[in-house]
């Protein structure tokens, strides 16, 4: 590898950037870091912010990422972008929400059963009505 290296920016939902670049600047957790070719292998978290990409013979490009991981290999650099805004507390509340949803839904199971029962009764009543209707028509 000479003056360029391969950069991939991917998120779980799509591939954001892929191609050879001259250098890239990412907002790492410990401060912005710039990566040129032949950078030492590195793995770090990145914060939400702008990633600056400079490809050969091209204007600088800016890509927003909402956090993620930056991986530097000898000739490939990968940014694994998050699709959601994350923090430890935020994840925690989400986990609690998912738990609560399950608990509540289980508690409300009774009402679900009631609903199913009511529906079954309604179907029966409707069938009876239809039968009565038919009988009536036959009489006339």
């Amino acid at each position: 590898m000479g003056t360029v290296f391969h950069l991939d920016i991917v998120s779980a939902e799509e591939s954001i950037y892929s191609g050879p670049v001259e250098f890239v600047v990412a907002p790492a957790q410990m401060g912005e870091i710039g990566v040129y070719p032949r950078h030492t292998p590195l793995l770090t978290r990145i914060k939400s912010g702008m990633v600056r990409i400079k490809a050969q013979l091209k204007e600088e490009e800016l890509v927003y990422v909402s956090g993620g991981m930056l991986e530097v290999q000898p000739d490939v650099v990968t940014i694994l972008a998050d699709t959601a805004v994350r923090s430890h507390d935020l994840d925690e509340t989400k986990a609690i929400e998912a738990k609560k949803a399950a608990e509540e839904a289980l508690k409300n199971r009774e009402s679900d059963i009631d609903y199913a029962k009511a529906q079954a009764e309604l179907m029966e009543a409707m069938a009876q009505l239809a039968a009565i209707d038919k009988l009536r028509k036959r009489k006339h």
Binding site: A12, D91, T93, K94, A95, I96, A98
Partner: peptide, 12 residues
């Protein structure tokens, strides 16, 4: 499918 929606359940 929204990643943000899955995070909580997976974290549990």
């Amino acid at each position: 499918p929204d990643m943000a929606k899955l995070i909580g359940a997976v974290k549990v």
